[in-house]
C-alpha cells in the first residue's frame, strides 16, 4: 500500500518536474535560466525511462543529453556576448500567424497519439543492454552506422570551420 503510494508519488513528482521545468524553459526571460531548467526536464525524462524499465536508455539520456548536449548549450550561451543581462523575447508580434503552425503541429501530434495502437506491457525489470547491443549490431546496423557517419561528418566539418584559415597566419 505505502510502497504503491510511494511509487505513484515518485512518478507524479517526475511528471511534474518534467512538465514544470519544460514550461520554465519556454517562458523564462533569462536564457541561461532556460538552459538550466532544461536540465530538470532531461533528468525527469530519464526518470520516466527508469519507470519504463529502460535502464540503459535512462543512463544514455543522462550521458548524452545532460553531459553532452546541455553542456554544449550552456557553453554556447556562455560564449554569447552580453550574456549577463540578455533577455530574449518570449512573445511574438504576429500571434495569428504563429497560431497556424502551432495548431498544425498540435493536430499532427494529437492524430498520432489517437491513431497509434498502444500496448500495455507489464514492466519487467530485465536488463535491456544485451538485446540493445545485439540489435544495434545486427538488425539496425545500417541506421546505426549511418548515424555515426553523420555525426563524424559533422565533427570533421566543425573542426574544419573552427580552424583558422591559412591566409590568417603570416608565418
Amino acid at each position: 500500500m505505502i510502497l504503491h503510494f510511494l511509487t505513484q508519488a515518485v512518478f507524479w513528482f517526475l511528471v511534474i518536474l518534467t512538465v514544470g521545468s519544460a514550461i520554465v524553459v519556454v517562458f523564462n526571460k533569462r536564457i541561461l535560466h532556460s538552459a538550466f531548467a532544461l536540465l530538470f526536464t532531461l533528468c525527469g525524462v530519464a526518470g520516466l525511462y527508469v519507470f519504463l524499465s529502460a535502464d540503459f536508455l535512462a543512463a544514455s539520456q543522462m550521458l548524452v543529453y545532460v553531459g553532452g548536449i546541455l553542456t554544449l548549450i550552456i557553453f554556447g550561451v556562455f560564449l554569447t556576448a552580453r550574456m549577463y543581462n540578455m533577455s530574449i523575447p518570449e512573445q511574438t508580434h504576429q500571434r495569428f500567424l504563429a497560431l497556424l503552425p502551432v495548431l498544425g503541429l498540435g493536430g499532427i501530434i494529437f492524430y498520432v497519439l489517437n491513431s497509434a495502437e498502444w500496448h500495455l506491457i507489464t514492466p519487467m525489470v530485465a536488463p535491456t543492454t544485451e538485446n540493445l547491443g545485439k540489435m544495434l549490431l545486427t538488425t539496425y546496423l545500417v541506421p546505426f552506422e549511418v548515424a555515426s557517419m553523420l555525426l563524424l561528418a559533422a565533427l570533421i566539418g566543425a573542426i574544419r570551420l573552427a580552424r583558422p584559415r591559412k591566409e590568417d597566419h603570416d608565418d
Partner: peptide, 25 residues
Amino acid sequence: DLNIGVYYVIAVTSLVVIGILMAGW
C-alpha cells in the same frame, strides 16, 4: 547492483559538470 553499473557512473557524473557550470555562472 545495476546491470549497467559502470555506464551509470559515467552518466551521473554529467550532473557534476552542470553543477559546476551553474556555480561558475
